[in-house]
Each structure stands twice: as C-alpha cells, then as structure tokens.
Simulated scan of single mutants.
Amino acid sequence: MSEMIWHKSSYSAGGGNCVEVAEGVTTSVRDTQNRSLGHLTVPASEWAALVSAVRAK
C-alpha cells in the first residue's frame, strides 16, 4: 500500500477549521487538528461529486 500524501484543502478557512485530503483512487479526509482520530475514505468519484455540488452553491 502506498503512503498517502496529505494536503490542506483549499476550502479550509482560517480559525482552525481545517481539513486535509489525500487524493487517489479513493479520497481520504481528516481533521488537521485531530489527525490521530483517523480519516474518512470515499471513492474519488463521490468526492468529486461532493466538491462539484459545493462549488455550485
């Protein structure tokens, strides 16, 4: 299994409300301030649909 490369989401705002994502065949999302709590992994297509819906608002 390859190592995940995490980056701060461009949608994260200041004030400590940040998430990080690792993208590939699946997309993983975690809380920047609570990395030890784990992450949520979804199919990349589902992540793309969510981002598209958020951008449309």
Rank of each mutant, 00 (worst) to 15 (best):
V42M: 13
A48M: 05
G15L: 04
K8E: 02
A13P: 00
A22Q: 03
V54L: 13
V25E: 15
S52H: 14
V21L: 11
G14H: 09
A56S: 15
V29A: 10
D31E: 12
S2L: 09
N17S: 10
G14K: 08
L40V: 13
V42F: 11
I5E: 00
S10G: 12
H39V: 01
Q33H: 08
A22C: 02
L50R: 11
A48C: 05
G24P: 04
T27R: 12
A13M: 04
E3M: 09
S45M: 09
Y11W: 15
W6V: 04
R55T: 11
R35V: 01
K57W: 08
E46H: 12
T41K: 10
V42Q: 04
S12V: 01
A48S: 11
Y11C: 01
A48T: 02
E20L: 04
S10E: 10
I5H: 06
N34A: 13
V42I: 15
G24K: 13
A49G: 10
K8L: 07
S9M: 06
S28M: 05
A22Y: 10
S2H: 06
T27C: 07
L37E: 15
A13Q: 10
D31F: 04
W47R: 11
T41V: 06
A44P: 01
G14E: 10
I5F: 04
G38D: 02
T41S: 15
D31R: 09
V29N: 07
L40W: 13
C18P: 01
G38C: 08
S2G: 02
A48Y: 09
G38W: 08
S12N: 11
L37R: 13
A56G: 09
S52M: 01
S45L: 05
R35Q: 09
S9G: 03
M1R: 01
E3A: 14
E23F: 04
V51I: 15
R55H: 12
V42C: 05
